[in-house]
């Protein structure tokens, strides 16, 4: 342990290319991400604090945060659970059609969100295949918050699955088998042995999916109904501010959303970093 710590401290720049790689990384990051984002901040800085505060706390805006937050949270939760199951099934079991299933996971990325929204709306409207079924029980999906959640689940499918899969692949089943032989129940094995290992990656996937869902626009506008206070999401508010040529309010709300996604990601990365340390320390 001590030797390793000493070595990594002393030898931290043995490998060549630090200057070059960090330089390239930071430059590209600045060009594509930081400078444009700075434009957003600069634009918002033209507002007085009270103007800014008013723009981001209007009742309709507050209601939209709530809608966006709740639906994105539930959708990411569903994706977290289903993502673990999917990853588990794909890694541990053999069954016909597995490769096809595996290959399909990224499809939600490729389908333009607008198309996804249109397809999902026609499926889940009261006249649609799925919507018609639920309509018999008096449940509507399209044009409600449930519909928004459905669209967001679709958008977020790949995140958790693809985050958990590699970790599960590396996880040696030997420990589970040993625990099983020693008489531990399946649920207990899962909770005590598997879950701690995959939890950080589940959280990573959850965080990414959550952030992505918070900002999703294309698919949601078709399925949401967009009624103020009920099914109006924050990106739509930004869009409507833009259409009113109210750049200031739009950028102010955009900044709030940006801060939210930054926060989520930062937390995720903290978890991941800690996890990486634990993994290394254990070796």
């Amino acid at each position: 342990m001590m030797v390793q710590a000493k070595k990594s401290k002393k030898a931290k720049r043995v490998i060549p290319g630090f200057g070059l790689s960090l330089g390239v990384t930071i430059t590209l990051l600045s060009l594509v991400v930081l400078i444009p984002l700075a434009a957003l901040v600069i634009y918002t800085a033209q507002m007085s604090p009270s103007e800014f505060w008013e723009a981001i706390t209007r009742e309709r805006v507050l209601a939209s945060y709530k809608v966006s937050f709740i639906t994105a949270f539930i959708a990411s939760l569903i994706n977290a659970v289903m993502g673990v199951i999917l990853a588990w099934v794909l890694v541990r079991y053999k069954f016909p059609g597995k490769r096809i299933l595996d290959g399909m996971i990224e499809l939600p990325f490729a389908l333009p969100t607008a198309v996804a929204g249109i397809a999902l709306t026609s499926l889940t409207a009261d006249t649609g295949l799925i919507g018609g079924f639920f309509a018999k029980f008096g449940i509507s999906i399209a044009y409600t918050r449930v519909g928004i959640t459905v669209a967001l689940v679709f958008v977020g499918i790949p995140f958790v699955t693809r985050a958990v899969q590699p970790v599960l692949e590396k996880l040696d089943p030997v420990y589970e088998e040993a625990a099983g032989v020693m008489g531990a129940g399946r649920f207990r094995i899962f909770r005590k042995i598997i879950l701690p290992e995959i939890l950080p990656s589940v959280l990573t996937g959850f965080g990414l999916a959550f952030g992505r869902c918070l900002g999703e626009y294309g698919s949601v506008v078709f399925i949401a109904g967009n009624k103020p206070f009920e099914t109006e999401i924050t990106p739509l508010i930004i869009m409507s501010e833009l259409q009113e040529y109210d750049y200031k309010s739009a950028t102010a709300i955009a900044l709030v959303m940006l801060a939210a996604s930054f926060l989520i990601l930062f937390l995720v990365n903290m978890v991941q970093h800690r996890n990486a340390k634990i993994l290394k320390g254990g070796r």
Binding site: S8, K12, R13, I15, G17, F18, S21, L22, T25, I26, L29, V32, V33, L34, P36, L37, A39, L40, T113, L208, F210, G211, R212, L214, G215, E216, Y217, G218, T234, P235, I238, M239, L242, A250, T251, A254, M257, L258, S261, F262, I264, L265, F266, V268, N269, M270, H273
Partner: peptide
Amino acid sequence: KFRFKGKKLLTTLIDLPVTVSPIIAGLIF
């Protein structure tokens, strides 16, 4: 491969575009 200060911030900033709303992504440009 290296250790340096601000690594966590850097990784967070790199990830940021995934969670930025596409509307905002267009808006900033």
